[in-house]
């Protein structure tokens, strides 16, 4: 790619004309502009690659194929290890193909959009309030030249990111989620990546076997009122900059009991709060962690009739923060102002 650009350099030098287009990697970009470019590239670019994701003590490896035709995003994700599992996306329609008895069948049936479809799709300008964005030279990932971008928290209430973005396209080649001391909690990295090559129909077709189980889902956003169900719970303490993104009443996957769900975000990090009636069995002040994701359970007792509720906070936030949030969840009575 560098060689391909050489003539442009020569041309501009010879003619004395500075050629600078928005997609030229030679332009000095701000960190925010790099993030914007990354977002656009995730959607607009065709690519085919293999990436690994390390979290906790587990390493997953997947192949991803993405293209866009007539404004419709198409994507296919293939788990390369363990039980065969594929996710195929065509616009808003998502199909999950797996083997019978796969654990996920018993869990929630929603599947998110593709990994690169809406990456960091936030207003990056707002990030600077709680994060410092800075560029740190270049590196090489998946045999491609990458710029390094650090998104570091300004306080101890959230984690940071180190990103490696493709110098040509802005695609995310590697990311590290790091805690305040710089310890890597999660690592995502492409091993191979082809950008802009032809994507065939076969590349986007799942290899389903005779026994495969398929489940269909839609990514189309649901009605706004469904997203904001009245929830009589709130957090009395929140880390700085986190605001409620949604609230809803949902059902537990196993028992279909109602669960009040609150979700908060600071524009980059997010956590969810789940409040349910105290279960009859299996109750504990749970502290679980997988990579950067922590789950913390606490019991609250201020609901009417002194009934006990189990609060579970799940998110990519430091454990003490999650615990403090969980301990601050309170019931708001109906007639409260």
């Amino acid at each position: 790619m560098r060689f391909a650009r050489l003539p442009v350099h020569l041309l501009s030098m010879l003619s004395g004309v500075l050629l600078a287009g928005p997609l030229s990697a030679d332009v000095e970009r701000s960190p925010t502009e790099w993030l914007d470019l990354m977002n656009r590239s995730f959607v607009e670019t065709s690519y085919d690659g293999t990436f690994s994701y390390f979290s906790g003590d587990d390493l997953s490896t997947l192949r991803v194929v993405h293209t866009i035709s007539n404004g419709v995003q198409r994507e296919r994700l293939v788990h390369l290890n363990g039980a065969p599992r594929e996710i195929v996306r065509n616009g808003d329609a998502v199909e999950c193909i797996m083997q019978p008895g796969d654990e996920i069948l018993a869990l929630e049936s929603s599947i998110p959009s593709g990994p690169f479809a809406r990456a960091f799709s936030r207003a990056f300008e707002d990030l600077s309030k709680h994060y410092t964005l800075s560029l740190h030279g270049t590196d090489r990932v998946a045999d491609r030249s990458a710029i390094r971008l650090a998104i570091m928290p300004r306080d101890v209430q959230r984690y940071g990111f180190r990103l490696w973005l493709d110098e040509d396209t802005g695609l995310l080649l590697r990311s590290e989620l790091v805690d305040i001391e710089g310890t890597k909690l999660e690592i995502f990295q492409f091993a191979t990546l082809e950008v802009g090559g032809p994507i065939t129909e076969q590349d986007l077709t799942p290899q389903s076997g005779a026994n495969s189980v398929k489940s269909h889902m839609s990514l189309a956003p649901s009605a706004p009122d469904a997203q904001r169900h009245a929830v009589n719970w709130h957090a009395e303490w929140l880390p700085d900059g986190f605001t409620m993104a949604s609230s809803d009443i949902r059902r537990t996957p196993s028992t279909a009991k109602p669960v009040a769900t609150l979700m908060y975000s600071d524009g980059l990090a997010a956590f969810s709060v789940f409040i349910e009636d105290m279960p009859e069995a299996g109750f504990s002040k749970l502290v679980s962690r997988i990579g950067a994701t922590v789950a913390v359970s606490e019991i609250v007792t201020n609901a009417p009739g002194s009934t006990r509720h189990l609060v579970t906070v799940v998110g990519e936030i430091p454990t003490p923060i999650a615990q403090r949030i969980a301990q601050s969840i309170r019931y708001i009575s109906e007639d409260a102002p």
Binding site: G114, S121, L172, L177, S265
Partner: peptide
């Protein structure tokens, strides 16, 4: 709601 590589891979 947020999108992103890391959440998805998670």
């Amino acid at each position: 709601t947020n999108g992103g590589v890391v959440p998805f891979v998670k």
